[in-house]
């Protein structure tokens, strides 16, 4: 008698997509610290996922330089996710990366039944292609419009205006990472707070009135000697 009627039950997925700038300007310490920071953040993402058992956290990574390509094309459950270091390559074709991501944010392939996806953009430079067209493509998809977006600006040369437009919300700011310590903190924050935000219910028109988004970036300490 106690067996529940109905079809199969299932947790809802949270698709988390890293969009990582691998242009030449990231060469050296920046890319090394980025690889280190994301690898170190994975256990914290796993912890967040375990705190929210109703959400199934699925990770993907895309890199962009002269071309955009999937580093992890298929969604990987966070429990099975291992970070593979990314390498620098050439230009900063953010627009191509956003176009590629947009294809995954349509339904299908993205299921209708899901929690909001997370788009986490990390960049240190100025896009070298038509990034606005890419952003329009993301905004044209149902899940792209709903996505929780976070942006990390590495170093002083990062184009904060581009990252601000990517966020699409004047009340959100890109998170500045001007040192290895700040980058690690920013990656840690993006990995966890954004996932929490994606799985919280909100009133549909809350953006009109909510002044403190739940995933507003923290203020990061700036006491590192090694500044980019």
């Amino acid at each position: 008698m106690s067996d529940i009627p109905g079809g199969p039950m299932m947790n809802r997925p949270v698709h988390f997509i890293w969009l990582i700038d691998c242009s030449y300007s990231m060469q050296g310490e920046k890319i090394g610290q980025l690889n280190y920071a994301i690898r170190e953040a994975v256990p914290e993402m796993l912890s967040v996922a375990q705190d929210n058992p109703a959400a199934q956290l699925l990770l993907r990574t895309m890199t962009f330089s002269t071309t955009a390509r999937w580093h992890h094309k298929d969604p990987v459950p966070v429990e099975q996710f291992t970070w593979q270091d990314v390498q620098v390559d050439g230009m900063t074709n953010l627009g191509e990366a956003l176009q590629l991501a947009a294809r995954e944010l349509d339904t299908p392939p993205m299921p209708q039944r899901a929690l909001k996806p997370v788009l986490a953009l990390v960049s240190d430079g100025v896009p070298t292609d038509d990034w606005k067209a890419g952003l329009r493509a993301v905004d044209a998809t149902p899940w792209g419009r709903k996505a929780v977006r976070v942006a990390i600006a590495i170093g002083a040369d990062a184009d904060r205006n581009v990252l601000q437009e990517f966020l699409g919300n004047p009340e959100l700011q890109p998170l500045d990472a001007n040192s290895p310590k700040q980058l690690a903190a920013a990656i840690r924050w993006a990995s966890t707070a954004a996932v929490k935000a994606a799985s919280q219910p909100v009133a549909g028109f809350a953006d009109v009135t909510v002044k403190q988004p739940p995933y507003a970036p923290p203020v990061l300490d700036d006491d590192d000697d090694d500044v980019w």
């Binding site: 209708q112 899901a114 929690l115 909001k116 149902p142 899940w143 709903k146 994606a198 799985s199 919280q200 219910p201 909100v202 009133a203 549909g204 028109f205 809350a206 009109v208």
Partner: peptide, 11 residues
């Protein structure tokens, strides 16, 4: 989509 919903607090 997601966990957004209309609400009594909506305008």
């Amino acid at each position: 989509l997601g966990d957004e919903t209309e609400s009594l607090c909506s305008p």
